[in-house]
Amino acid sequence: MITSVLVANRGEIACRVFRTCREAGIRTVAVHSDADETALHVRLADAAVRLPGTASADTYLRGDLIVKAAVAAGADAVHPGYGFLSENADFARAVTDAGLTWIGPPPEAIEAMASKTRAKELLGIAPLNRVTEADLPVLVKAAAGGGGRGMRVVRRLADLDDALTAARAEAVSAFGDGEVFVEPYVENGRHVEVQILADTHGTVWALGTRDCSLQRRHQKVIEEAPAPGLSPRLDAELRETAVRAARSVSYVGAGTVEFLVDAHGRAHFLEMNTRLQVEHPV
């Protein structure tokens, strides 16, 4: 039984988890950098542990320090929130190796879905290994990417090699992984997500859909739930694929499966976020 939870995060998500813990009678522990010593999440927690330094790389991204803080504070479990170390399989393992409960998906599930190419393989989606004129336009994409980094739209075959080179370079710089792949580019597609929740007994629920199509520089600006204008057939297909993706890696906890929906109502799997989504309240 969990009696005390350390949240390895700050800001809105830490405050939200602390509020839920308080309602459940669970003790809370915050971690904070020197710059966040008086932050709201620190003041809301029952206890707080200082992570010396001001930069994220020295504090909130130091999994070893956070595990030590959890043990020292007497926490039973660690909640990663979103961002920072929430999709770091090594951190998840370090938490469990210390005898603590990891509130998140299994490390193996995090690793399996970390690569977009591996995720597509699990769902039986073949990559475009050989691009022809008939395939254009296509999108070159970083396998470990996100936020629009490591992406290039190609409309002419003559531009493909340069796009691959540029995408690889950006992917190495942003993610430390130069693997890229090519997939069909969906013109004017809708970005639709499915929120899933899975327990430890193999049950997966597709809780609902979100439309995230309004974006700026590949960053979401406005979201609407449930996603409007989906046919019953498409809604069912999105939910079924999301559940299948979760079951393919024995997923546990909250997660999000992302799709593009083209003008013909066809769904294209994008990726799975193995963490609590920033916009989960939607």
Rank of each mutant, 00 (worst) to 15 (best):
R239Q: 14
D64F: 07
D177W: 05
L128D: 05
V261L: 02
A98Y: 14
E193W: 09
D211E: 13
A225K: 08
A109S: 15
D36M: 03
P228E: 04
R50W: 00
N273L: 12
Q277G: 11
E258M: 05
L230W: 04
W102H: 07
V153P: 03
R233D: 15
N9A: 05
N188E: 07
T54Q: 09
A69Q: 11
T132C: 01
M1P: 05
L207F: 06
C21P: 01
A206S: 15
E179S: 13
Q277C: 09
R239I: 01
I196P: 13
I110T: 12
Y60H: 07
E179H: 09
I13Y: 00
A236C: 00
I2Y: 01
I26K: 00
G255C: 13
G145Y: 04
A166L: 14
P107K: 08
K141F: 06
R155A: 14
D177M: 08
A94D: 14
A225E: 09
I66P: 06
G178P: 09
L85Q: 13
A55E: 11
Q195V: 13
M151A: 11
T274Q: 13
V49F: 03
M151L: 15
Y251E: 12
A39L: 04
V7Q: 04
T117L: 15
M272V: 15
V221R: 07
D58G: 07
A144E: 05
E187G: 00
Q219A: 10
D159E: 15
M113H: 05
V204D: 08
N88I: 13
N88K: 13
T203E: 14
